[in-house]
Design a protein around this nucleic acid. Structure first.
Lengths: 153, 153
DNA sequence: CCCAGATAGATGCATTTGCATGTATCACTG
DNA sequence: CAGTGATACATGCAAATGCATCTATCTGGG
């Protein structure tokens, strides 16, 4: 039973989100136009990246869906494309017959690393001149805290 | 003539961007599924919002394009839709015969305000519990600094 | 003034996306 | 263990998107 949120509380939250969102747009626009994404659209790379980062190397479709801003059906078809190109392999989830377990192929891992190296350089060229290391660490902490709170429930 | 960026510099920048990006995805996913966006997709609302925020009330197509993650052609057609629904009006730019000047209609402004009120509440419900006001102000400052640096050049 | 190049925006077309729905598996209840 | 509802993913189809290209206007020499 919390009270009414004050108008200034609401406004601060809205302005914060607005700034976060616009900065994301500005950075993403630059990144997407970089040569790294001539080979493959950013959304597809993002899926390869997500798989490459996962300890077990395998992820369920719905786990990936949490990390990417795509509908379930769009992600399913994106996987079709990646599978057709031989970059990922679909498997059956061991404990759930409905589930699909996705894994990078050798070729998929190679492509991820190739694009990734270039992409990371592009990121650093945008972010490093903009914020001091201490500021970057603080931004990292705050966005991670926000993400945890939001995906928490 | 700056030297080689160190590996840790590059990594910090990459991790910072990654955290910013994922937090944006998590929040946006929640916001998009809110009832506020039953009436209209988020990208279309975003354009109405951008126009409503502009002091003169009028913006060029390419100015709007800087704020939104859409290709020029997609934005042009999004405007077709909004115009067809009577929410925005296209006009000719006074000093440039090639340019198009966009303006909200009365109906467009009303719809923006209706969705906006609801949307702002949704934002506050996600952001306010996640970060203290001081943290929000700091996040606002850092993302604004990043955006300014990136769109600067 | 004219012409070459640049810029703003519109349009044809193939690809991608999301909504609604379909199918298969799971989980719970009685 | 049959039955009901929920969950995971796939698919038909209409709509949205991006790339390449087109038209029109602007800009800067000569």
């Amino acid at each position: 039973m919390s009270g009414q949120p004050s108008s200034s509380t609401v406004r601060l939250a809205a302005e914060t989100w607005e700034a976060l969102f616009r900065s994301q747009v500005a950075v993403m626009r630059r990144l997407q136009s970089a040569p790294a994404f001539k080979k493959m659209p950013a959304k597809e790379y993002d899926v390869l990246f997500t798989l490459s980062r996962c300890p077990s190397g395998k992820l369920r479709l719905n786990e990936i869906n949490d990390k990417v801003l795509l509908s379930q059906s769009s992600l399913s078809r994106l996987m079709d494309r990646l599978e057709k190109r031989g970059l990922v392999a679909r498997g059956v989830a061991p404990d759930d017959g409905r589930g699909v377990l996705l894994e990078l192929t050798e070729a998929g891992l190679e492509l991820q690393k190739t694009i990734g190296r270039e992409h990371v350089r592009d990121i650093a060229e945008l972010v490093a001149p903009a914020l001091t290391p201490a500021e970057q660490r603080e931004l990292l902490r705050l966005t991670e805290k926000l993400r945890a709170s939001v995906s928490g429930h």
